[in-house]
Design a protein around this nucleic acid. Structure first.
Lengths: 228, 228
DNA sequence: CCTACCGATCGGTAGG
DNA sequence: CCTACCGATCGGTAGG
């Protein structure tokens, strides 16, 4: 609702609004952290209140209902994801390099545990995929947009003749994302950190197979430790 | 605990035990169905009782606690998965054909909705990957065993020189499974039935790339509709 | 297998 | 933002 600083008629900042903004942000960040570990249903009003040292009414008052809180949490997590993955990848100019940057930044995002429970979106996607409603649709929109970012980066690389133009961009986007999802699964459930390397290896091999100049990619054995 | 028919001292079947067995089976099947849709935490004793027309005590009496019920549900789902995927795939003799049969049978299992909410194991894996305890370990064991089935089938195909011996079997198993997981995600969350075709296409392309005789595999455009 | 009950927690509201 | 409260549901138990 309210974005940025609000001023009164004489240009002064209203301290209550500033505090309200800060509280709202703290609620959504903690909610996204909890959801990545225990799901959006694990984000109860009572739990949020006690962890943030608020009353339950102090939490629900900002959003009106549990569903509104869930929707706001998904939106906040979408922004966090964009800041952690899409924005850094887009520092690389369009072409094969940007496609690989998207893969690399995703792996870094997972490895750094931007969300403490692993990828927020994998957790809530499987949680809500059978629960009709606005939350499910918002999560689905986020996934469609992510796959579209991948697809468009591949399209651009094809227009620049850096990726074979006969390749189906939707299929390639699907496969690169699949390798990422499985890495999250194995890293989280099996405590198998090596899964990130397997994902990177599979992505690079896939890209080398369709690149017109494979030597533009990192060497096959390359392992992403901590990309800038 | 009690398997098969129990008889009294004179060889007669005890009707109470037979009914108990039937109830126990009904509880676990319904629990696995609910868990595939709403997670294992969605399997509450009250919900199970009302859907099966039992009392809550009639449900919990069979298992003693929620955790024991969850463990039994994971075990029952493992049997269902083995019957639906592993057993039919193992009708194909060891070699490249069996590796493809595992892929094909998994896609058929997902397409047929053996569990109404899609793959039981993807749902509960993401749900429990941050919840330490026996349930998480049992789910992790099931995943490790499934990946080991894939890996062993690949190993055998390599011993028979039907798959390039320089290929890393763990990596290939990882990639084939990743394509399957992503298909489940897109089919369930995005209502995108085409995801199964993308998974099959990606798996076949991957296998053709490492097969010594790719023509032994179905043609590239092959789509699994309803495998026997 | 049942009824009846326990304390805890859920989402949400009233009133301030 | 708070306290105090609502009915519903949770896992689990007592007693039969």
């Amino acid at each position: 609702m309210i974005e940025g600083f609000q001023t009164d008629g004489r240009g002064r900042v209203d301290g209550r609004v500033v505090r309200g903004e800060r509280t709202r942000r703290a609620i959504l960040q903690r909610a996204a952290e909890i959801a990545s570990m225990d799901g959006l249903e694990g984000v109860s009003l009572g739990r949020l209140a006690s962890e943030l040292h608020l009353s339950k009414a102090g939490v629900v008052g900002h959003y009106g209902s549990k569903e509104e809180l869930q929707l706001a949490t998904v939106e906040a997590a979408t922004r966090t994801f964009a800041d952690a993955v899409v924005t850094p990848a887009f520092e690389t100019p369009p072409g094969l390099g940007r496609v690989w940057a998207l893969c690399d930044c995703w792996i870094s995002y997972a490895r750094r545990r931007v969300f403490p429970g692993g990828c927020f979106f994998l957790s809530v996607s499987t949680e809500f995929d059978c629960r009709p409603g606005r939350v499910r649709e918002l999560i689905a929109d986020a996934r469609r947009r992510w796959l579209a970012v991948y697809r468009q980066a591949i399209d651009e690389a094809q227009q620049q003749s850096e990726i074979d133009r006969t390749v189906d961009a939707v299929q390639l986007a699907y496969e690169l994302d699949a390798l990422a999802m499985a890495a999250n699964l194995d890293a989280q459930l099996l405590d198998d950190i090596g899964a990130y390397d397997r994902a990177a290896h599979g992505m690079l091999a896939r890209l080398r197979a369709v690149a017109t100049n494979p030597s533009a990619l990192p060497p096959i054995g390359h392992v992403t430790e901590s990309p800038s």
